[in-house]
Design a protein around this nucleic acid. Sequence first.
DNA 1: AAATTTAATGCAACTTTGTTGCAAATACAA
DNA 2: TTGTATTTGCAACAAAGTTGCATTAAATTT
Lengths: 126, 126
Amino acid sequence: MGVIRKTKAVSTVLSIFENKNEAKSVVSLIELVKGEMNKTTVYRILDRLEQDGIIHSFNGKDGLKWYAKCEGCSAHKHSDKHPHFQCTECDKVECLSLEVKIPALKNHKVDSTDILLMGQCETCCS
Amino acid sequence: MGVIRKTKAVSTVLSIFENKNEAKSVVSLIELVKGEMNKTTVYRILDRLEQDGIIHSFNGKDGLKWYAKCEGCSAHKHSDKHPHFQCTECDKVECLSLEVKIPALKNHKVDSTDILLMGQCETCCS
DNA sequence: AAATTTAATGCAACTTTGTTGCAAATACAA
DNA sequence: TTGTATTTGCAACAAAGTTGCATTAAATTT
Ligand SMILES: [Mn+2]
Ligand SMILES: [Mn+2]
Ligand SMILES: [Zn+2]
Ligand SMILES: [Zn+2]
């Protein structure tokens, strides 16, 4: 709803996502900016950036919240519904541009789908 | 590894899963048996039952832990890898006997997959 | 450029989920 | 029935996430 202000804290968080195209857990983000801003601020900035379609969130394998940059989203629609991959060795999380077909479900109305693949990433594979 | 003992608390938890074929969140289980046993005990019993292949666990949409009865599992292999459905209205969670094909992922070794469908359940649909 | 408005932040206190250590209780086998 | 290993309760703790409120700092207006 409210206009998002370009504060120092917002810029810092934004730059983290712009530099690397890799998902970040909230916990790691808080750690990254520790000393520079409060954890409450991190949570609130992430909320706002998600509402504005700049980042999207999902749950990792341990139930923790992760965020990653959006591709073609806006405040009014998050159009990047894709699966994620979490490495069980190094814990890295990637957005996948993979199309997964979900068979129709009788007597249910499916609105969204969370898919998390787990295993070894490219680095940990070799 | 230890043998699982048939205590009163274990029987109580088991009966909850045996009566209804519906997933239960840990939070709701603790609430259900409140007064009868300690929450630590609930957590530990669920751990043991999962290790023994009697129940399986997964994360709901809010990152909370859920459990449901297993179909043909044992202590040595959990063979019921299936998607789950969580109703966004009544919060009910169901195990789905649905086969979802995941396309191959280059340079990754995928060991497991968590799939959660969200929407309206049969009851909330009509 | 100053004043005003409104959003954003810091901080402390809190909630919720989940874990740990240890002493006491209980299941079960001998 | 006795001995032992497992299970339980309890209290204290840990980690993730939220809330209220006073203060600060953007963005607008004058
Ligand atoms: Mn993503
Ligand atoms: Mn299930
Ligand atoms: Zn890895
Ligand atoms: Zn429902």
